[in-house]
Amino acid sequence: MASESISVTTSDDQTIQLSRKHAQMSQTINSMLEDSVGADQEAIPLPNVSSEVLKKVIDWCTHHENDPAPVEKVKKLNKKREYKAKNSTISDEWDKNFVNAELRVIVDILLAANYLDVKGLFELMCKHIANELKGKTPDQIRERFGIQDDLTEEDKAAMRKAWGATKNDS
């Protein structure tokens, strides 16, 4: 039978053990496991995730391991809150602490959560980044996230026209 722990290899060539329960919270790893039923348990390569980030992801999974199954939860929420504005408030205290990190780390975790398909963690990181974006001007956003401005003046003029003058304009 399948063993209780799974090993994965991260982008910096470290092999990390994690419990099957945590591994299955990632849809990506889960489907890899299902594909390889019966095969020898080799370490699963995760070339897009560093060991530092994976540890963070495992931390989150450990704290949330007893949450209701993500798929059911999402369906239920959709049904109930379909027509409500999405709330970006992070209510869980532990989560608040978790996102209290450097922006670089946050972005890495978001990318990892997206790649590994860990729904709850992905939502949490999206909310946090959305909160970071709120009320900022385009210049401030570019500076904060290190984004290249590749829009021409014409593009910008067209967008300003479409949206009307905004106080966020720089």
């Binding site: 959305a130 974006l133 956003i141 570019r142 290249q148 829009l151 905004t166 966020n168």
Partner: peptide, 17 residues
């Protein structure tokens, strides 16, 4: 990520890149 924003933040997002 943007679905968590308010509408008033969208013009700025459009002008980022």
């Amino acid at each position: 990520v943007f679905t968590f924003l308010d509408l008033k933040d969208i013009p700025a997002i459009n002008l980022v890149s």
